[in-house]
């Protein structure tokens, strides 16, 4: 019983409940919603669940990076723009130089795109860790400038390109499962092991809990901030390749648009406080799945996609209220009253 109570108090639990609730709504509309079938033509798995896996991949990546940055007591508003920049660089390179079936060209484009993404991350890191600017304003500037940079790279066009290896990464399947999801899974497992199996996670938490105490304890603040912002930018760069690769077109004003908000939402749903300090990578995964499921559900129910934000708002408000001390107190009181009433009856 106590164990159940502990679970209910953990924020990711409510995110998990919300995902089940959304799936239940979909099932009510179509009893075959969760069915996974093998496509007779390609041999790949098809179904709504597989679609969700595909949608969740980029959100997982940026949510992971965001989680670490938030844990240091910062925030990275530039991830959406980094997605656009990375996609723009890759598409422009392939458009100008790429042969349609060259693996080398695809790798060069990916390398170039991730290099530029890391450059944006480096600027963030230098301004935050060395100059000492606030993360909010620093990454806000990079969010504005980054999208501008993407537009400059493509000269304001929505560049498209043809390259089969690149398209395979974003749209292909291995063992019937989307490549993007497998890649995202491998990346987040590597990062999670790196963070949680070493002292890195603890050091990052110490930075977020109390920067002064961390400094007195000899924690290398700069190195940690650099790794957090660089990692966030790198993961966002990969997410940008996923997002543009699936249609092989970069939409400079729409690619990654408001992705930073999705990432922050996923992290907060997962129970990581925006104030920094203790963070939950597992919670961020639950949060990312919640957002992907929500996005798919809204489309499935036939609600216009532009109304999606209103549903996200409801989810945020409900989850924040469930986590707030005041509402917890109310629920506790109501529970105590009910127990008292039951005792009186008995």
């Amino acid at each position: 019983m106590n164990r159940v109570k502990g679970l209910v108090k953990k924020p990711p639990f409510w995110g998990f409940v919300a995902i089940l609730l959304l799936l239940a709504i979909n099932l009510a509309k179509d009893p075959r919603y969760l069915a996974i079938t093998v496509s007779p033509v390609t041999g790949n798995l098809v179904g709504n669940v597989i679609d969700i896996l595909r949608v969740v991949a980029p959100i997982l990546l940026i949510a992971f990076g965001m989680c670490l940055v938030i844990a240091t007591g910062g925030i990275d508003l530039s991830v959406g723009s980094v997605m656009a920049v990375s996609g723009a660089v890759a598409m422009q390179y392939l458009h100008d130089h790429g042969a349609p079936d060259s693996v080398g060209d695809a790798l060069a484009a990916i390398g170039l795109a991730l290099g530029v993404a890391l450059l944006v991350g480096l600027v963030n890191a230098v301004l935050v860790a060395v100059v000492g600017l606030q993360p909010f304003i620093t990454t806000l500037v990079m969010m504005l400038a980054g999208r501008g940079l993407a537009k400059v790279v493509t000269q304001g066009q929505n560049t498209n390109a043809v390259n089969d290896p690149m398209r395979w990464i974003a749209n292909g399947y291995v063992l019937g499962i989307p490549v993007v999801f497998l890649l995202a899974l491998v990346l987040i497992v590597v990062v999670a092991v790196l963070i949680r199996r070493s002292a890195l996670g603890l050091l990052i938490e110490s930075l977020g809990v109390d920067p002064k105490a961390a400094r007195l304890a000899g924690v290398d603040r700069r190195a940690l901030l650099f790794s957090a912002y660089l990692l966030s930018a790198l993961l966002a760069g990969i997410a940008g390749l996923f997002a543009t690769g699936s249609v092989m077109t970069v939409d400079v004003s729409q690619t990654g648009y408001q992705a930073e908000l999705d990432a922050i939402l996923a992290v907060v749903v997962g129970g990581t406080s925006l104030a920094g300090g203790r963070f939950s990578l597992g919670g961020a995964v639950v949060g990312a799945f919640l957002i992907a499921t929500l996005d798919k559900t809204i489309v499935f129910l036939g609600v216009p996609a532009s109304a999606t934000p209103a549903f996200k708002a409801v989810v945020i408000v409900v989850l924040c209220l469930l986590q707030s001390q005041r509402v917890r107190g109310w629920i506790g009181q109501a529970g105590a009253r009910m127990r008292a009433a039951r005792k009186a009856v008995a």
């Binding site: 925030i75 908000l261 922050i264 939402l265 907060v268 406080s273 925006l274 104030a275 532009s306 109304a307 999606t308 934000p309 209103a310 549903f311 996200k312 708002a313 409801v314 945020i316 408000v317 924040c320 209220l321 707030s324 001390q325 005041r326 509402v327």
Partner: peptide, 19 residues
Amino acid sequence: FGVQPFIATLAMMFLARGL
């Protein structure tokens, strides 16, 4: 309810835009 300003006003932004 002690929600952080960033998240609370983000929720209102989503709500207003969606509505």
